[in-house]
């Protein structure tokens, strides 16, 4: 992990953690400028980032810092205007076409005319899985997110939290290497959010997938991540990358421990130094 930012002091070059594998996302001097009616908007500037296999990486920062844009560039939903990025050693487009990742949006984006089961089958249908295989995967993935028995319900019959869990099951259904999550719990209340954070951690431990997670909640980022990427706005850039070595067993109570609070304080300092609070 290299973050070389002129003018910024915090460059932490840590040895590669033994439990994480080869780099799966590598961005070098990534730039993205949107041309808008009000002139160019510099959404991403000189992004350098490495995400290794099996890591849980969070992007945190205020609105407009480019965290969602960066995730969308990884997913090939936006095209960078400069620099280089590889996903699984491929271009983002090739990686998308190879179905390297499952994407979870801010809203569940379940298709309202499909039952929960059929929604989870959507990517499987697109990718040509057999009907029998689809059934197995619907069942397995619903169980994975604790929604067994809801297969034949329509989305509106589920609560917001359950809908978002269904959308996570949908993203996992075709067993991608990576999970890209864009503020998936941003619209949920805190109690549901705590619960889903716990479940997500268990899911991550169970599936060993690489997760890239966008959030604007400091406790959420610290609770979930192995690495926190602190971003700052105008132009959107990486301010600091903070390791978050709280181990794999993280009960909700860990949020009251000094270790947790220390990392949270570092993230907050990072955000402040990046002018996020201006």
């Amino acid at each position: 992990m290299n973050v070389a930012m002129p003018g910024h002091t915090t460059v932490k070059s840590d040895p590669v953690p033994a439990n994480f594998g080869k780099p799966v996302i590598e961005a070098r001097d990534l730039d993205l400028t949107f041309q808008t009616g009000d002139g160019p908007v510099h959404a991403l500037s000189k992004i350098n980032l490495t995400v290794r296999q099996g890591e849980f990486v969070s992007f945190i920062g205020p609105s407009g810092c480019g965290k969602t844009t960066l995730l969308r560039v990884i997913a090939d939903l936006e095209q960078p205007t400069g620099g280089a990025i590889s996903v699984n050693g491929l271009s983002p487009e090739a990686a998308r076409k190879a179905r390297a990742y499952g994407y979870v949006f801010q809203a569940p984006a379940l298709y309202p005319w499909r039952t929960i089961g059929k929604n989870i089958a959507l990517p499987l249908e697109v990718m040509g899985f057999s009907a029998a295989e689809r059934q197995t995967r619907i069942r397995d993935n619903l169980a994975l997110v604790d929604l067994a028995g809801f297969e034949n319900k329509f989305p509106w019959q589920l609560s917001g939290g359950m809908q978002q869990r269904a959308s996570i099951a949908r993203a996992l259904s075709f067993d991608p290497d990576m999970l890209l999550m864009d503020e998936p719990f941003g619209a949920l209340d805190e109690i549901v959010r705590d619960h889903l954070n716990e479940q997500l951690l268990k899911l991550w431990a169970k599936t060993q997938k690489t997760v890239v997670f966008v959030t604007h909640s400091i406790p959420e980022a610290v609770f979930l991540s192995t690495k926190i990427v602190v971003m700052s706005p105008r132009p959107g850039r990486i301010h600091e990358v903070i390791d978050c070595d709280l181990g794999t067993d993280r009960p909700l109570e860990i949020r009251e421990t000094p270790e947790f609070l220390a990392i949270a304080a570092r993230v907050r300092d990072g955000l402040r130094a990046g002018h996020s609070y201006d």
Binding site: L77, R99, Y101, G102, Y103, F105, Y111, W113, V126
Partner: peptide, 27 residues
């Protein structure tokens, strides 16, 4: 845009976007 982006992440063909998203949306 969200529903369309979702189909894009699956690398779906135009026909699939039509059959699985546009057609049912238009009912």
């Amino acid at each position: 845009a969200l529903q369309l982006d979702l189909m894009r992440t699956y690398h779906s063909s135009r026909g699939q976007v039509f059959g699985k998203l546009r057609w049912p949306s238009a009912m």
